[in-house]
């Protein structure tokens, strides 16, 4: 704290290298900031995708979302340990396991919370909040609170150097998975019978029963899909991030803001908002002291909802 002035002075020269030509390095540094922010943003979007889907379908905020992410990471960790196969190949299994977890959580917890006559929203929040604590406790019981990571993977620690701009392979892969997941989600919702049932249920859960759609079945699959998407996110994260029972927290908050910024009910909004948040975070960190980089995200959210109270692309 005594060197505040020094700090402020330094801020202006951040991102400029000292010895090389200033112009090229500035461009490179800038490009690196943008690219890193973009890749991180795609991963934020991927984490938020499941939350967005569940929310859009049934107006439920899943407070255990961060813990779902944590479970997916541990699932990947455990599978790699047991099968000695690379995480990239195990992704479908993790997504499948998470689909099952999501369906079970809907049938076992959320379905009952939805019966509440008063303040169903808050009941769901706290039922899933309780669930989140249980999941953290279970992770600590079965895996101990040690910090884990998966060593020696195909992608882990490898970086693509594009003329001085560094693109880590795990994040590149994560970005690709993220885009693929959103494309898949779009096709599912717009091109399949299930997608139409999903949309119809979202519009009017009561009326769909009349046309023979089993609301409960749609919700169960919806939760499964949402959790399965978190499974993909967790699989990617497990390659380049550490794993422990509390790992989900910081990501969950970003995911909530991402979904709200994009607009509740809009899958595309989550993608756009994820990327925007990644970029804003990276840019804020170069303008403000780095410990305040989240302020940029918060300010962006407030600025958007004050102008557009339903987020960027929301319809709810």
């Amino acid at each position: 704290m005594p060197c505040r002035e020094h700090r402020l002075l330094r801020l202006r020269v951040k991102g400029l290298a000292q010895d090389n030509g200033l112009k090229t390095m500035t461009f490179q540094a800038l490009a690196q900031i943008v690219v890193s922010g973009l890749l991180m943003g795609l991963i934020y979007a991927l984490i938020a995708a499941g939350l967005s889907l569940i929310f859009g379908l049934m107006d439920v905020v899943n407070f255990a979302h961060g813990e779902f992410l944590m479970m997916a990471m541990y699932a990947m960790f455990g599978l790699v340990l047991a099968l000695a196969v690379d995480p990239v190949l195990l992704m479908p299994i993790v997504a499948g396991l998470m689909f099952a977890l999501g369906a079970i959580v809907y049938l076992g917890v959320v379905r009952h919370a939805m019966r509440a006559k008063v303040n169903a929203g808050m009941v769901q929040v706290f039922a899933t909040f309780g669930l989140a604590i249980v999941l953290r406790g279970l992770a600590q019981l079965f895996f101990t609170p040690d910090f884990r990571s998966i060593p020696n993977t195909w992608l882990g620690g490898k970086t693509l150097n594009l003329g001085g701009i560094f693109l880590p392979w795990p994040q590149l892969f994560g970005g690709a998975v993220s885009i693929a997941a959103f494309v898949g989600l779009y096709l599912l919702i717009s091109r399949t019978d299930f997608g139409r049932a999903l949309a119809a249920t979202r519009e009017d859960a009561g009326a769909v029963a009349l046309v023979g759609i089993d609301r409960n079945k749609v919700f169960t699959i919806g939760w499964g899909l949402g959790a399965g998407l978190v499974g993909l996110a967790g699989s990617v994260m497990a390659i380049f991030f550490y794993i422990h029972p509390d790992v989900g927290g910081p990501f969950a908050l970003t995911a909530y803001v991402t979904v709200a910024l994009g607009g509740f009910g809009s899958i595309f909004g989550a993608l756009a908002a994820g990327v925007i948040i990644g970029l804003i975070e990276a840019i804020t960190a170069t303008i403000l002291p780095t410990e305040m980089k989240s302020l940029g995200i918060y300010a962006a959210y407030l600025a958007v909802v004050f102008v557009r109270p339903r987020g960027l692309f929301g319809n709810i």
């Binding site: 060197c3 020094h6 700090r7 330094r10 951040k14 991102g15 400029l16 290298a17 000292q18 390095m25 540094a29 690196q32 900031i33 890193s36 922010g37 991180m40 934020y44 509390d246 927290g249 910081p250 990501f251 970003t254 975070e281 990276a282 960190a285 170069t286 002291p289 780095t290 410990e291 980089k293 989240s294």
Partner: peptide
């Protein structure tokens, strides 16, 4: 000489921006 002095939020989801600043100050 204090080449760079970075405070970061504990348990950050990403430290990319922080490391870029370390790297350019070297």
């Amino acid at each position: 000489n204090l080449a760079v002095d970075i405070k970061y939020r504990a348990n950050s989801p990403s430290l990319t921006a922080e490391v870029q600043q370390l790297s350019s100050a070297n």
